[in-house]
Amino acid sequence: MQNTGLSVKNLSVFYGEKEAVKSVSLEFSPRQVTALIGPSGCGKSTFLRSLNRMNDTIGGVKTTGEIWIDGHNINDSGVDVVLLRQQIGMVWQRPNPFHKSIYENIAFGPRYHGIRSKRELDGIVEDCLRRAALWEETKDRLHKSALALSGGQQQRLCIARSIAVKPKIILMDEPASALDPVSTAKIEELISELKKEYCIIIVTHNMHQAARVSDRTAFFYMGKLIETGETDQIFTNPVEKSTDDYISGRFG
């Protein structure tokens, strides 16, 4: 059980001159799924990537504002991004398994955080695969290439890989948009299972998915956070007119 959430205050992200995220303040609670929705280019993915400072890896990005986790501001100059990213895992739209065996994909992270014993690694691999509902399908071919898995299996492997380093928060950037409906259903099931332990933040273009998996929803438009609240309330009774227009498909 984790009790770590995330608190964002006045976060702005600039690509050169362009302000992609405009002074967003948002709270993320532990053991909850928060969905970030909004039309393409509204800044929700940029916002998500700034939560584990993934934007550092591209040049020309400036971030201002505060992101608090366990009493530390992520954007502080003293923060070690390596330790930070261990706390905040991430899953992308396209499954990106390493060109290694299934076992090595999971063991990769823990090895770098100092776990060397084979028995311990074996335990982590089994545990993570079980939690990602992938153990039954892969237990006989753990040492085969991860690239031989189907797209949906690869994505679940990526989720298993991200929880192997024991993060407190998992960021997901459209984790099911490249998958077929059956795989999507499995991922959503997995998200509901994982939220018992983690704080999950998910970007999605799929309104139904947001409604199905999330507890809270935040609507972004033109870089601004327009509205946030309980998912039920956002989908049935939004305060802002643009939120209503977006979720009912009148634009975007």
């Binding site: 584990n52 993934m54 890896t57 390596v82 330790l83 930070l84 990213r85 261990q86 895992g89 991430m90 992308w92 396209r94 990106n96 398994p97 390493f98 060109h99 990769f108 992270g109 770098y112 955080h113 990526c158 890989r161 991200s162 192997a164 380093v165």
Partner: peptide
């Protein structure tokens, strides 16, 4: 090299050299 692979490694807390 697909950029996703590098990002995937960074996101697990690996350093640039790792």
């Amino acid at each position: 090299l697909p950029s996703g692979l590098k990002e995937g490694s960074f996101a697990l807390g690996a350093t640039r050299w790792q």
